[in-house]
Nucleic acid binder design. Sequence first.
DNA 1: TCAATGCTTCGATCACGATCGAAGTATCAG
DNA 2: CTGATACTTCGATCGTGATCGAAGCATTGA
Lengths: 228, 228
Amino acid sequence: MKEGPDIALIGSLIGDPARANMLTALTGGKALTATELAATAGITVQTASSHLSKLETGGLLTQRKQGRHRYFALADDDVGLMIEGLMGFAAYRGFTRHRTGPKDPALRKARVCYNHLAGDYGVRMLDSMLAEEVIGGAGDKLTLTKAGEERMAALGIDLPALRRSRRPLCRTCLDWSERRSHLAGSLGQALLTLFLDKGWARREVESRAVCFTATGEKAFLRLFPVAG
Amino acid sequence: MKEGPDIALIGSLIGDPARANMLTALTGGKALTATELAATAGITVQTASSHLSKLETGGLLTQRKQGRHRYFALADDDVGLMIEGLMGFAAYRGFTRHRTGPKDPALRKARVCYNHLAGDYGVRMLDSMLAEEVIGGAGDKLTLTKAGEERMAALGIDLPALRRSRRPLCRTCLDWSERRSHLAGSLGQALLTLFLDKGWARREVESRAVCFTATGEKAFLRLFPVAG
DNA sequence: TCAATGCTTCGATCACGATCGAAGTATCAG
DNA sequence: CTGATACTTCGATCGTGATCGAAGCATTGA
C-alpha cells in the first residue's frame, strides 16, 4: 500500500482530457503559449492556466518567459519518453479518439517525437544504424561506434558539443505506431535538426507530422539503407 | 486535439489512488481476490468492486473465477511493463509516498516485476547475460544466442515450450530503482520460476521483495558473474 | 501616459465520480 | 434447506476538481 513510487499522482495529471491534449500537443516538441494550448484543448485561457500550473508543479512542464508571452514545453526527455510510452500502450489497446484521422498515415510514416524522428522512418533509421554498425550496444545501452563517429562528423554533426551536455547521446524510445524502438537522445535530436536544416524535410504546421521532400527522401534512404 | 491515441483514459484509470494501489499490488505478479485488494487499498469491498470492473473494462485486468473467489491479475505483460515504466518515472521524480520504507532496500536489491526478476539482481542478470553473450541483440531486440540456448537448456529450462507460446521470449523492461533494463519476456519469467523452484530464493509474503538464501545467492552470482 | 495583449488569480458554479450502506446474486459446507 | 462467505448492484451522499466570468498584473507599443 505505501511501498514504492506513487503512480497515482502522475496518472491523475495525465488523466484529465484537457491536460492530456496539451501534453500530446507539446509532444510535438515546439514550445507553445497558454492561449495556443487552450485552443488545442478546447478550453478557456483561465482553465488552461490552472492546468498548466498544475502540470508545472508536477514537474512535467517548464515555462519560459519571452516578452509578454509564456512558452510552455515538456520538462525534459524523460517526460516525452514517458508520454510516448503511454501513447504506445493506448494505441495498442485501441484507445484512439477518432479511429484513424486523415493525417494518420503521415504520422505513422514520419513524425516528431518530442525532439527526434519517430514513425516508420525513425524506426528504419535506427535499424539501419544498428545493421551498419554505426551504433552498437546491447540491451538498452546504445553507443556510437568509431565508424559511427566518423559518419556523424561527415554529416556535419558536432559530436563534442553534444557530449558536453549531460544528456545521454543515444537512447531508445518506444515508437507507438511501430511498436519498435527508434533513436532518441541528443544524437537523435541532432539528426532530426539536420534533416530539417538541410531541407530534406519540413514540419507540418499544427501537427507532429514530418513531411519529406522527394530529394530529401532519396537522400535519407540512401543514408540509411535497409537490408532485404 | 483529436489525433493520436488517447492517453487520458489510461491516465484517469491510474490516477485514482485506490486503483493505483491495487495495480501496484498486482504488479507483484500474484492474482488477488477483491477482498484482498480492497484491504491493500484501504477501501470497502463495494468500492473495490466498482474500481475493479472499471479496470477490467479498461483492459488492464483480467478476472478468473475459482469457486466463490474471483482472482484478479494484470491483463498481460504489456500492462506490467507500462506500470513499471510509470513507476520508474515517478521514482526518478521523487514521487514516493513515504520517502523510503523499511522494506525499500530489499525491494531495490531483488523484487518481482509482474512475473520476472527486477532490482539490482535483475539488472545484473541481464548485464551478465549480455557480457557473456548468452543473449545478444541491440536496441530493444533481444535474442538468445546458440550458446545461450545450451546454457538455458542445461539449467533445465524448456525452451521449445516457451517458444510455443505467442509471447516474446526475451524483452527488456525498465527497472524503476536502477533506471536500467532487466530481462522480461517468457524467458525472464521462466528464470525467476527456476530460482524459486530450486529454493535459491523465496518471495516475501505481502511484498514484492525476493529474498535470496545464502546458498542461492552464491549460485546466482556464480551463474551470472559481473565483470570488474 | 493610455490602450492593448497575454496571462494569472479569485470566486462561484456545477458535474462527475469516489465512497459506503443495504440489498441482491452466486457458490460452498453442512 | 440453511447459514456462511464472496462479490456485485443499487441508491444516496458528499467532496473534489474542472470550468468560466470578472478582476488584477505584467509587458509592449504608441
